[in-house]
Structure formats: C-alpha cells, structure tokens
C-alpha cells in the first residue's frame, strides 16, 4: 500500500481491444506502469505501438463505442476505469491535463486562445470571466508567449505553430495539474521550436511540480527530458528502465535497434543508418510468441512463446535471450 501513496498514477495490466468488422483487434495487451509525483516518464515506440492509446485510456478519452478496456488505472489510489463521466471530467483538465501532437488542429478555430484557456479555468473553478481571463494572461506569460496581453485575444490561425503549442501548454497548466500527458508535443514543430518547447516543459516541471508522461518516437527527445523510459512495441511494454540504463545498457533487441538508428555525432558519418528490418506487425495479424520475433536478429526457439518482463524492478525487459542479463 506504500506504493499506492508514492505513485501518482498506477496502471496495471491494461488491455484495450477494438471490435472491428474484421474481428477483435488487441491494441494494448497487459501494459503496466507507474508515474511518481514530479517525474518525467518517456514512452517510446513506433507509430501504432500503443503509446497514445494507452494514455488516452488513462484520460478516459477513448470514445469509440467498440473499444473494450480492462485492467486497472489508479490515479492517487482512485480507480478511473469504470468511473462515471462526471468524476472523470472533474479529474481531466484539473488533475491530469493533456497536450496533443498537432497544435494546428488541437484548438477550436473560432475562439480566441484566451477564451479557450478561460473555458478550462471556469470548468473547474469558481472564477468569474474576468478572473479567468487574467489567469489566461498570467499563464501565457508563464509559457513565454511574447506580448501575452495582446495574444490572449488572438485566434489560433493568427499564431505560429510554436506559439499555438505554447498556448496549448498554457491551457494544460491552467489548473496546476499533478500529471501532464504530452503526446508527441514537438513532432509537428521545427527543430528550433522543438528545443524551446522541451526547455519550456522542463522549466514548467520545476516551477509547477507536475509529473509528465512524454510520448514520443524520438530517442533524442527522450535523452533530453525523461527520467525513466518505457519502450513499447505492438501494444506491450518491452523494456522499462531509467534513462541512463536505456541508453547505455539496453536489454531488449528492439531498444537496441532503436538506438542504432540514431546517427552518431562523432566519428565517421555512416554510409547508411541502421534501420530495423521489416515493419511493425499489423494488429490484424499478430505473430504468435514474441511480437518482435520476426524482425529480431537474436531470435531463438523459445521466442515462439510470449516473453514476460523480467529483471530487477528498476530495469526490466521482455526478452528470453537478453532479458536475464
């Protein structure tokens, strides 16, 4: 029970499946992870590995009526799966906030950003319209938007991508959330703006003390911001460890291959970057046994069974070959 108090978020054995015309599709199979207060958890994996779906499940934002979600999602010890819409609504935006990938489409085009921030403030508090607006200006200042007093009355289309993402972050921070879920918040931005946004998130984490779950497919971003890392592949967690161990002693062949695909900044420039042979498995045709098996260079006979996470609590990998090391 001490664990429950130490951790902000505890996800246990989360399964998400979708009923489709081609049969049931298992998008997430038995994902478990914890987030401690104030820490940054990086979640990496290719597109379709289930990073976003698992966090949308945490937020209760999977609205597809064909989705089946089982397992346990506890926030501050309170079960979120099966909680009423009203309960979820009071947590969403107030205690857990989310930043989305594309700032171009994640703001309603017909309202000013001040209006949209104020909407969130007033959804959770007793603030008057005037107070909510002042709070919006304050937040826009905090995220470093130039000229916040004027920016508050701007419409999304009048702002650049980086400025919009700052506005979205300001909105997410409006109720001082304990947990911030950032779903590839820098993917749609230029590299220089990316760096600014990462700096901003790191600074806000210090100032506001929010824990951050950072979803990305970019190992460079992970190196920049994460404390601990969760590597996902085909709907499962294949490795979890602190950042240092992931980069220096990766155990899962997939993590290893991901790191190999980053160009080195010292030494000779390689002729070709190492890529991972093959493509991620289709959810409709999952290989039996280890999902990474067909693409894995260290494959052995044992890999025809599904490997579980093994290893000491601080560093676990789901691999028969290298997991025990």
């Amino acid at each position: 029970m001490a664990d429950a108090l130490r951790n902000l978020l505890e996800v246990r054995d989360l399964h998400v499946a979708f009923r489709t015309s081609r049969g049931k599709v298992q998008a997430i199979s038995g994902v478990s992870f914890d987030v401690a207060p104030g820490e940054v958890l990086g979640v990496v994996g290719e597109s379709g590995s289930g990073k976003t779906i698992s966090l949308l499940a945490v937020m209760g934002l999977i609205t597809d009526p064909n989705a089946e979600i089982t397992g346990s999602i506890r926030f501050r010890g309170k079960e979120l799966l099966g909680a009423s819409n009203k309960e979820l609504r009071s947590i969403r935006g107030r205690e857990i906030a989310m930043i989305f990938q594309d700032p171009m489409t994640s703001l309603t085009p017909v309202y000013t950003i001040g209006w949209q921030i104020a909407e969130q403030v007033r959804a959770h508090g007793p603030e008057t319209a005037k107070q909510a607006r002042d709070r919006a200006v304050e937040l826009l200042t905090a995220v470093g938007l130039p000229n916040p007093g004027e920016a508050v009355d701007r419409y999304p289309h009048q702002l650049s991508g980086g400025m919009r993402q700052r506005a979205v972050i300001a909105m997410a921070l409006s109720c001082n959330p304990a947990l911030l879920v950032a779903d590839e918040p820098t993917t749609a931005l230029d590299v220089t703006v990316q760096a600014q946004i990462l700096d901003l998130l790191a600074r806000l984490r210090r100032d506001f003390g929010s824990a951050i779950v950072f979803i990305t497919h970019d190992m460079g971003v992970i190196a920049e911001i994460a404390d601990r890392v969760l590597v996902m592949y085909a709907g499962r967690v294949v490795e979890r460890a602190n950042k240092r161990d992931i980069f220096l002693e990766p155990r899962h062949p997939y993590t290893h291959a991901l790191l190999q695909s980053i160009p080195p900044i010292t030494g000779d420039r390689p002729r070709r970057l190492k890529s991972i042979a093959g493509t991620p498995p289709s959810l409709f045709a999952m290989p039996s046994g280890c999902a990474f098996g067909p693409r894995c260079t260290s494959r052995v006979a044992a890999c025809s069974a599904v490997p579980g996470l093994t290893g000491e609590p601080a560093h676990q990998a789901a691999c028969f070959v290298t997991g025990m090391r």
């Binding site: 934002l61 969403r92 906030a97 994640s106 979205v168």
Partner: peptide, 15 residues
Amino acid sequence: QEDYIRTARAKGVSE
C-alpha cells in the same frame, strides 16, 4: 471527430 473536440474533452468540459 476533430482534434479540438478531443482537446475540449481533455479540458474537462461537459459533453
């Protein structure tokens, strides 16, 4: 289906 509707839901705004 738009992204901004998901944003609004994530804000905790009522349906």
